[in-house]
Design a protein around this nucleic acid. Structure first.
Lengths: 125, 125
DNA sequence: ACTACAGTTGAACGATCCTTCATACATTGG
DNA sequence: CCAATGTATGAAGGATCGTTCAACTGTAGT
């Protein structure tokens, strides 16, 4: 709201405004946050991992493979579809899903690598 | 809960169990989801972007640069600290934060690239 | 010791999210 | 047409999350 900060004291004003100018646009930030939000759910994460392996799968197999209900899987796939993370191919009454976006594949792969290399201690500092 | 799926019909049983075995462990999935969850908030995202640019910044400058209250910034940094995404250096009554983990930097960078290459239409199919 | 300052923390409120249930839609087979 | 099947969707319930307010810790300066 305020272009230069009023309520918060500032130590290094130059640095602050320089960093400020370098930040991604509001739109980019929102967009990024939404994509990460999609990845922040275990069910959806497993779905993407499944599609990464399985290539193309129908909803019921996807649900079974990731331990979700059909309805839950469908809701999840809807969100992923809306964000263009997956794409669907229809054949009769079946719906076959696959990953749509290679960036997300890379993101996902990198994240898995990150997880594998990370100690799983959580502490405060 | 169920090792082989009971309530959900399955089309390709072999594929399902093969994919199932290939999925990351429960622990990895939870861990990943939490990391992505951290990145799913605009405020935290801006903080990480700021630290990516600014290198090391104190809480009040970070708050000013990302348009957050001191309290909000502190809460956010606490979460990032607990997940070892940032680390803190204390000097007197100041607290200087910087990114702790190069994986997160890469994740973040890749994500920005992704956002820049993505059309911002959201539709259903 | 007292005041000012930088930061931290807990509680409360509202918003958002995930899960589940029920229902609806479209396609296939009789 | 009717029943069965695979999928999609809206609404409700409870959980989780982010923001804010108030109080608290620890340091610096007088």
């Amino acid at each position: 709201m305020d272009p230069d900060g009023c309520a918060t004291p500032v130590v290094d004003a130059e640095r602050v405004s320089s960093v400020r100018r370098s930040l991604p646009s509001e739109e980019t930030v929102q967009d990024l946050a939404q994509v990460f939000g999609l990845l922040a759910d275990p069910g959806r994460l497993r779905m993407m991992a499944a599609l990464l392996e399985g290539g193309e799968m129908c909803v019921c197999d996807l649900a079974a493979a990731t331990g979700q209900s059909m309805s839950g899987a469908s809701h999840a796939l809807r969100l992923l579809r809306m964000r263009r993370v997956v794409k669907v191919r229809r054949s009769g009454r079946m719906a076959y899903y696959q990953l749509a976006d290679s960036h997300v594949r890379m993101l996902f792969d990198l994240a898995i690598t990150h997880a594998r290399h990370t100690e799983r201690e959580s502490g405060d500092g």
